[in-house]
Write a protein that binds this DNA or RNA. Sequence first.
DNA 1: CTGCTTATTAATAATTTGTTAATATTGACA
DNA 2: TGTCAATATTAACAAATTATTAATAAGCAG
Lengths: 226, 226
Amino acid sequence: MTNESIKILLVDDEPDILEFMEYNLKKEGYIVLLAKNGAEAVEIAKREVPQLIILDIMMPEMDGIEACRRIRESKELEHILIAFLTARNEEYSQLAGFDVGADDYISKPIKPRILTSRIKALLRRTSFNQETPAVQIGNMRIDRDSYLVYKNDEPISFPRKEFELLSLLTSKPGRVFTREDILSRVWGSEIVVGDRTIDVHIRKIREKLGDDVIKTIKGIGYKFDI
Amino acid sequence: MTNESIKILLVDDEPDILEFMEYNLKKEGYIVLLAKNGAEAVEIAKREVPQLIILDIMMPEMDGIEACRRIRESKELEHILIAFLTARNEEYSQLAGFDVGADDYISKPIKPRILTSRIKALLRRTSFNQETPAVQIGNMRIDRDSYLVYKNDEPISFPRKEFELLSLLTSKPGRVFTREDILSRVWGSEIVVGDRTIDVHIRKIREKLGDDVIKTIKGIGYKFDI
DNA sequence: CTGCTTATTAATAATTTGTTAATATTGACA
DNA sequence: TGTCAATATTAACAAATTATTAATAAGCAG
């Protein structure tokens, strides 16, 4: 779950398509906002300032092109990435879309993998996804770019879940994360694993970094402490 | 702006349009070359090998489609990005353009912001190819111009995909590239190949350079590490 | 067209990672 | 200090991911 803070606004008048995209993007950990027409989209965009808006072209109330234009008008929203949804042979729509400042277009029918990979490619361009600086805590350095943890300059590699768990705990040293926090942020909202799973992962981290770096707060959760 | 070394060839028979585009692109720091018909374009392309050519479709002497075809014929110019300029409703031209290997089309009337952002997007697609002509890492030298890798001064030749993959990984040594990163940057955002394809290419690279240069981060991706 | 190289897939093996279940241990609190 | 729920530990098992191989397809030079 590394997309936690990225907001995407989906705009389409067909609930099925909205739901389909919502499902796929939530699965990737994005925060998903929904609108069913251009007017609503502009309103939500202004309020929430998402990083990316995916706009259907053909919609009642206000079409995608117009919505895009309105969004681009606003100085604060200028930088938002906008991708249009287009039927495959709507050549004209594509042109119009780029003219009002679209960053990409995604053609229907939408395939989940293509959707997510296009989105990632788009987001990569922006500053939101710049390299994450390594975090230094005591004699330890957590480097998200290389997925390595250095202990006294010794690199130690961690499997994904362990890394994400450690990464979460170290994101706020000293702060206690409840088991619920941990479950929802490392395992996602649809919790399917048992409580012991956390313990086991904690133990594996302790095996590698020493017993003292992660403290247990009985009845509450865990915290990372120098 | 580090566009100083990027050459763009503009081809159009209308001096006004040439001048307009030249002005806007120079402002961004690109090196701008001009041609007023297809024949001239091919000639200059061969001599100067720009990174990008923006071609009007309708021109005297030799039209854009034909010029594009001639340019694509030549092995050395194959990699050049080509974008067509089209009038708003020249639907057919667009299709023809993509057939002869165009990378994008830009519709008239041209707006500065769109022009430059499209160009940036286009160049970004291949930017990791041209950032640095040769990179030295450990006992290895990767020469992006000749598609050769030297290991202790022994030249080893790599097929295109393998080279691009290696090139991507070495562009940021130590940094983990996710499979999605790799797919979208080596294969393009419309992903059409399966996951195993990456593995196979990785394996072939390892066969040539040794097993240890590329490390697997299970669940995440790969990284190049000295 | 032919033969060669490169790219991709499919099938299967190997490996790593994730989870659970069973049992032991801990520590807050009556 | 004894109790008991919460956490730790361990090992076994399941799931997921990657490696490998060989076969097939696609490109390309001669």
